[in-house]
Simulated assay, not measured.
Amino acid sequence: MPDITWEQPFCQDSGNCFRIGTDAEGNAHIAVAGREEHRVTDSVEALRMLIRDIKAGKADHLL
């Protein structure tokens, strides 16, 4: 497992808490808080775009 620096959890109104982290290789990771071993890993820009799309309502079916 890569050495990941995790940010503090981000919790939505419904109580779903997510964490975003980065590793030394420039990859970004997003996971449900407490379940970091089951994470999505991609480039920082790809995960940034995913978060923007979710906030814009384009991908709300994923939540």
Rank of each mutant, 00 (worst) to 15 (best):
S14W: 00
E7Y: 02
I20K: 05
H61I: 12
H38W: 13
G26Q: 12
R35H: 11
K55L: 13
S14P: 00
A24Q: 04
P9L: 15
D13F: 09
E7S: 09
F18C: 00
H29E: 00
H29R: 01
G21H: 11
A33I: 05
W6H: 06
I30H: 01
V32C: 14
S14H: 02
V32T: 15
I54L: 12
T22S: 14
D60V: 14
N27P: 01
T41C: 14
V44N: 07
H61Y: 13
E25K: 03
W6C: 07
V44L: 13
M49H: 08
N27M: 06
S43E: 03
T5M: 02
C17P: 05
A56N: 13
K58R: 15
A56H: 06
T22G: 13
C17N: 12
T22I: 15
G15C: 04
E7L: 13
D23P: 09
H38P: 04
S43T: 12
D53H: 09
K58C: 05
A46P: 01
E45D: 04
Q8C: 02
K55N: 11
N27C: 02
A33S: 15
H29F: 11
R48G: 05
W6D: 04
G26A: 11
R48W: 04
A33N: 12
L47R: 04
T22C: 07
G21P: 08
E25H: 00
I30K: 03
V40D: 07
G34E: 04
F10A: 15
L50S: 00
A28Q: 03
H29P: 00
H61V: 11
R19I: 14
E37T: 07
G26N: 08
N16I: 14
I51H: 03
F18E: 07
D42T: 05
P9S: 14
T5A: 04
A31P: 01
N16A: 11
H38A: 13
E45P: 00
E36K: 06
G26I: 13
L50V: 07
A46N: 08
R39K: 11
V40P: 06
S43C: 01
A56T: 10
A31R: 10
T22H: 10
E25V: 03
W6I: 13
D23C: 06
F10W: 09
R48E: 03
C11Y: 11
E36W: 02
I54K: 06
S14C: 04
H61L: 10
D23I: 13
A59V: 14
T41N: 12
N27S: 09
A31L: 01
H38V: 14
C11G: 10
N16H: 12
A33L: 02
R35G: 01
G15H: 05
D42H: 03
G26W: 10
R52I: 06
G26M: 11
K58Q: 13
D53G: 10
A31G: 03
G21C: 10
G34I: 14
E45F: 01
V32P: 07
R19T: 14
V44F: 09
I20G: 04
E7I: 06
V44D: 07
A59T: 15
